[in-house]
Structures are given as C-alpha cells and as structure tokens.
C-alpha cells in the first residue's frame, strides 16, 4: 500500500504549490490513475514515490514505511518505472535493457537469462527474435512492450507509469491497454498510472484520482466518476456521453440474466445477436441497435448460450448509478 500524508511540493521560485496538501491511499494490487490537465501535479505526485522529486513537506509511506528512511537506490530497485519515451538504453540490446535491474540486484546469469525470456513471452514478444535487437530496430509499440518488460524485470511490487502509451497511435494504444490489463490480471502489481487521457483512466483504473492545481478534486472508482462527477471541472474533463462510457465499463457476463437449460433450448436457433461474456454493455447496446431487437444472448468460451441481456436491463444499470449530468 502506498500512502501520501499531507504531501506538499513547491518548486523553488514558484508562487504556488505544484502539489498541495495531498492525501492519497493506493491499495496493493490495484491500478490508481492520476488524471488531469498538464500542470495539475500528477507527474510530480508520481515522481515523489520513487524520490525522483522530493516533497517539500509531508510523508509518503510504502507498506507502512516512510520512504525517507529507505535507501534511495534500494527503493528505486523495488519500483518498476515506465515513461512515455520508454527511455530504453539505445546502446544495449533488448535483453541487456531488461537485465539492468536484475543485474543490480545481483541475480545469477542464468536466472537473468530465463527471466528475460519469461518477460518477453509475457509482453508477447518472441524472445528468440527480440532478445538481441537494439531499441532502434523496434516499432513504438514494441519499444513500450520492452519498457514494460524492463520495469517488471526485478519483480517489483510497485510500478509507476508516466503516460506510457501517450506517444502511440490510437490503435496500438488500445491494444497495449488491453494487453497491459491482461498482464496485470496475472501479476497484480500496485500501479500508479499518470495520464491526461480520461478515457484511458476510465478504462484502466481501479480508482481514479482527478487532480487540479495540485489537489485531488475527486477520488473514486471509474463508475462513480462517470455517474457522480464531484464538480464542473470533473464533468468537463469527462466530456459528456457518460452513459455510454459507463456501459463500456460493464461486462455482459456480469450483468446478464442467467438462463435455465430450458430457456437456453428455446433460445437456440433464434436470430438474435450473441456476444461473449467479456464483451461490454456498450457492445451489447450496439448489437441491439444493429439487429433492431431489445435483447441479446450471451455465450461462454465454449460458445454455449448461458444468459440474456435486455435493453431494460441496461437502462436500469445506468439509472442505478444516477446520472447527474
């Protein structure tokens, strides 16, 4: 768990605080998104966790220990760090880049080597093909995958990610987000993720901290932010179409009505649309609009129909969260 206690950062020569009296708790194994316009203090907040920036006052605790009492190098070696420009070392191969932190931690050669293969597999790069490539031979998306692998190399419990997908084209970005969520399901790290992209925050975050002028204006789950923006600033940041965004956060599998075997038998052969359990409610709505029906069926991985989702169901779900804007 990471905890900020009354943290203030004021840069020398500035009239106002970059980060003002910030209190924040980030649960272990969750993704906390720091979101806000540029200059809101989100990057400063993140960089104080690995002491790249020192707070002017206040305390930051990791697992109950004040980071001031932890050796800087030791602290950083236990925190994965990913930045937008990847910061891959251009003179080292992909493998050597990943090996840096394990090397610092004093791992044995063969352990490092198998770790490299394991991580490249994890980020979906063929180890044989990529180990010995130099960063300038990689595409933007591949570089970022290597960046993720490098940050994970020492198996740190915490990862800091500073707009990691900001420089990628929209399609690659979406794919990287999906894959990163897939990876996170396996590794369950505590992740602090900085972004200025609200869509990304809603998609990736377990919690979202919206920052404005160095202060948190709202700290809540993506659903809560969409349904109950705390003030006009947050609503403006979200930028409308909240119901659709909320639907994109719900999985068909979670909100469907389970069908009895008899009902399944009845449904068989009907022309309605069918979606997987992992499809979003937004997909379901889109499918209903396409077919012109007020319901769709949901199927499991084996393509057996297991449930149904109807329009009233969606309506109720959205209303339950009480749209206010």
């Amino acid at each position: 768990m990471i905890r900020f206690e009354n943290v203030v950062k004021r840069y020398p020569g500035e009239a106002t605080d970059a980060v003002h009296n910030l209190n924040l708790e980030i649960e272990s194994g969750t993704i906390c998104m720091l979101v806000g316009p540029s200059g809101c203090g989100k990057t400063t907040t993140m960089k104080m966790i690995n002491k790249l920036i020192r707070p002017s006052s206040g305390a930051i605790l990791i697992g109950g220990r004040n980071i001031d009492t932890v050796d800087t190098i030791e602290l950083r070696l236990s925190i994965g760090y990913i930045i937008q420009d990847t910061g891959l070392f251009p003179h080292m191969t992909v493998g050597e880049n990943i090996a840096v932190v394990p090397g610092e931690l004093g791992w044995k050669k063969d352990r490092i080597s198998s770790r490299i293969d394991e991580l490249l597999d994890l980020v979906d790069l063929n180890p044989k093909a990529f180990r010995n490539k130099k960063p300038n031979e990689l595409s933007g998306g591949q570089k970022q995958r290597v960046g993720v692998a490098r940050a994970l190399a020492g198996d740190p419990p915490i990862m800091l990610m500073d707009e990691p997908f900001g420089a990628l084209d929209p399609i690659t970005r979406a794919r990287m987000q999906d894959e990163f969520l897939r990876i996170q399901e396996k590794i369950r790290k505590t992740i602090v993720f900085v972004t200025h992209d609200v869509e990304e925050a809603i998609k990736m975050g377990d919690t979202i901290a919206v920052l404005k002028l160095g202060q948190i204006v709202q700290l809540s789950s993506p659903m809560e932010i969409l349904s109950n923006p705390s003030d006009p600033f947050v609503s403006e940041l979200i930028g409308g179409r909240n119901s659709l965004k909320m639907l994109s956060l719900m999985r068909c599998g979670q909100i469907m009505k389970t069908l009895s075997p008899a009902e399944v038998e009845e449904a068989r052969g009907s022309p309605q649309g069918i979606l997987g359990m992992k499809a979003t409610a937004q997909d379901a709505l889109s499918e209903m609009l396409r077919t012109g029906e007020r319901f769709i069926f949901v199927e499991d991985e084996r393509h057996d129909v297991v449930g149904v989702l109807d329009f009233e169901n969606l309506l109720e779900r959205v209303n339950r969260h009480g749209i206010t804007s």
Binding site: L52, T72, L77, D85, G87, F89, E104
Partner: peptide
Amino acid sequence: NPAILEAARGMGLTEKKIMRT
C-alpha cells in the same frame, strides 16, 4: 536524452553506474 537518464535513475542506478554504463 533526458528521458534515458530519468529512466536510469528511476530504475535505481547510482550516478556512478549511470556514468559508466
């Protein structure tokens, strides 16, 4: 490139090590 240096620092390399490697 400052990004490279920031990555190196953030990863926990000492200044000495950053100079050398």
